[in-house]
């Protein structure tokens, strides 16, 4: 007997997109509530999560395809590089790290764990998703309520990140240790 995701593949992708959106929403809420501005590497990790979300959104909207899973894997690897770099920046003994820790770990460490989990998720789902029932590439499909919810959560947090990053850094590079929003008095 062959075990496949079958019709649950869009649901699995929607849940993953909801998870990625949740991570981005949580990071933004932390930024607002604790007044901790994201550093350039933190922003690159957010961009990595957003790029992962594109592969998941394409799976939801057009059906599962190897190209879409490839986007998830490459994006997770890109995010992993920036998270690993930041972990290494603060790995020396006595270094307090950047920002406040959450459940004992800094956000960049959590990001490294999350990107690794996304890679693992992609591997497992690729083993189980036969992609046989998906429409041909380019053929649109109507997402269910879970897919719509995940997409709205994802699109809205992306828009918020565009505005937030522009207010924080303007159109140029961000300072290494930001202390205030450049576009706010």
């Amino acid at each position: 007997m062959k075990i496949t995701l079958g019709r649950t593949a869009p649901c699995v992708n929607s849940l993953a997109l909801l998870g990625v959106s949740g991570i981005l929403w949580f990071a933004f809420a932390w930024q607002l509530l604790l007044h901790e501005l994201p550093c350039p590497l933190c922003l690159l990790q957010r961009a990595g999560f957003a790029m992962v979300g594109i592969g998941l959104l394409l799976n939801i909207r057009f059906g599962s395809r190897p190209l879409h899973y490839g986007i998830v894997v490459v994006s997770a690897l890109a995010g992993m590089v920036s998270a690993a770099r930041q972990v290494l920046l603060h790995i020396a003994p006595g270094d307090p790290g950047f920002g406040s820790p959450f459940l004992g770990l800094h956000f960049y460490t959590w990001a490294l764990v999350a990107f690794f989990a996304l890679l693992l998720w992609s591997g497992l789902v690729l083993m189980l998703d036969d992609m046989g029932s998906a429409p041909a590439a380019g053929g649109k499909r109507a997402p269910g309520w879970l897919g719509k919810l995940a997409t709205v959560a994802f699109l809205s947090i992306l828009l918020i990140n565009v505005l937030s990053t522009t207010v924080e850094c303007g159109f140029g590079p961000c300072p290494d240790n930001p202390t205030g929003y450049q576009w706010l008095p």
Binding site: P40, L43, L44, R46, A47, A50, M51, G53, I54, L57, L58, R61, F62, K140, T151, F154, L155, L158, L159, N161, V162, T165, T166, C169, G170, F171, G172, P173, C174
Partner: peptide, 18 residues
């Protein structure tokens, strides 16, 4: 630094619009 967020938002918007 805001450019990747603009392009990824565009990408998501295009995906959603088909």
């Amino acid at each position: 630094m805001m450019l990747p967020f603009v392009t990824v938002l565009l990408s998501a918007w295009f995906a959603w619009r088909g």
